[in-house]
Write a protein that binds this DNA or RNA. Sequence first.
RNA 1: GCGCCAGUAGCUCAGCCAGGAUAGAGCAUCGGAUUUCUAAUCCGACGGUCGGGGGUUCGAAUCCCUCCUGGCGCGCCA
Length: 598
Amino acid sequence: MNDSAAGLADPLPVPVYTLTKARSQIVRLVETQGLKVRPDEVRDVEAEVHADLAVPLFRAAKDAGADPVALARELASKLDLSHTLFRQVEAAQGYLNFRFNPVRFARSVVRDFQIEPEGYGKSTLGQGKTIVIDYSSPNIAKPFSVGHLRSTVIGHSLHRILSWLGYFLVGDNHLGDWGTQFGKLLEAWEIWGREELFKEHPTRYLLDLYVRFHEEAKVNPALDDRARDWFRRLENKDQAATRVWRRFVELSSAEFQRIYDLLGVEFDSTLGESFYADRLEPLVRHALDRGVAKREHPLEPAGNGEDDVARDERVVLIPLDSAGIDTPLILQKSDGTSLYATREIATAEYRIENWNPEQILYVVGNEQTFYFRQFNAALRLLGRRTPCVHVSFGLVRLPEGRMSTREGRVVFLEDVIIEAIRRARRIVEDRDMPDDEKEELARIVGIGAIKYADLSQSRVKEVVFDWDKMLALDGDSAPYLQYAHTRCRSILNKAGKPALKSRPDPGLLIHPDEVELLRQIARFPEAVLAAGTNHEPHRIAGRLYKLSQSFSSFYNNVPVLKADSQDLLRTRLYLVEMTGATLRNGLWLLGIEVPDRM
RNA sequence: GCGCCAGUAGCUCAGCCAGGAUAGAGCAUCGGAUUUCUAAUCCGACGGUCGGGGGUUCGAAUCCCUCCUGGCGCGCCA
């Protein structure tokens, strides 16, 4: 009663989970002595010291002009812990160390879980708000490379995490199906295109054409002019150009879908860039009318042909000096065609008008950081206030350097997936189960390993592609978490009756491994919150890994089915149930499936 | 040249946003655990000038400055 009533007084998302509640209690306890500490100054002590939560008082003591050591001692003797989750507070070198009352703590965590077992970790933070998230967004006519994996899995995970925080999500796969490169492909197709090769391996063949085009264009610059002309025809709805382009899109999309099916990645919307083609011209006109954009002579003439650029041809650009950016954003090329940025702005406007989101997230590589500053500044000048947040991530490189589709130096995602499944299959081989289950298990484990390799490290760092690292099946990996989960299932299955119906007695959880497991479970909701607000799925991955470690240790040291008493059996079963559900929930938030057995 | 990002154990990383108690994992190496709920597991050992220097602070891997190294970017590619 006291706990929850006090918890509701805070402007915190609901439900207020145990750990968050405990922080608030400490803040209020200290407040009763006329001192102010922030909730984030309450430290969640991982292991070592004799404390569950601790508050360093150095800062508060300084503000109050007191000696921290003496202050800690004084507070420790005065704080009244009744009606809190704590049983003890002691002073240690300027710290206030709090210990949980084990029974109240356990009971509280169990209560948290019982609110909605399959939704443990959810909250109402984003209720009533919409977020559009742009992820994956591969380029049509190019094979899906491991480079695109990051955007795909990070975006998909963020979609799930944010929806758990109560937001309404629109996941949009913004296919790169428009732009100058299609002019090049149309030209290449006209010269060299061969139907049977295209049909066999659409994107790989189109990549070949693309590579060949660039090689030939080096010695024959006229090709570039013809490519530009093709794209202009495409933007002018030329029928022949459109027909061929449409086939490129259709066959490439079918290939992408195959990958998405393997990965288990979905979208709410798949509007490619081409969808916005009709909004480009009005956008440019509007920007000019508003005085935000202006026509200007290009710094250097486009193309390199004879009298190609007529003197009256101008680029349309948006100067961004007012935003402190000296490079303007070009909206229209001197030949009148659109650019990536033009289509991005049109896209953002459409999303704003259509979905009225609180923000738009772009899961895009960090090589576009500068471009996103320009993009945001331009949108603002056009009167749009919706924040467009660049959720950036580091580039995936090969040991021999940057991947380049143009130079054919890429690792295809499909090859990685096949290899991952193959490696998983090697381990699954000697399991005693039907072949089709083996195959499905190999897929779940292999795909999980790939995703986890990406999601378990922070986004910002660049990744040097490494087969062994990406496909790790032991240690800090998805299979380790999946394995812990199947062990939970296995125990529960053998126990027979559904553990959720059993009545746990939290007072019985006194073994160190039980206590530690409970603490790990208690930390999960805050990890989900942090992952969502910071757009960092790896916070969940890290939390799940620690939870799995605790469970593995528990599994090794603490008998469940052979517990000393029926009460203990029921209680431990419940703990296992909580562990399994938390792992399942967390893995789901990462977009990773769990097998029934391994 | 200017800007953004990264640099933590042999290798791969977490911790940095909101500074706190002896800097944590995995892999690799070495040694142990299976009549007990699946060993894709567990326990232990080894291993670190937190890139260098300076500053702020009672206290710096964390904040500020500077230098070094690597990556990326800087008007008509996406």
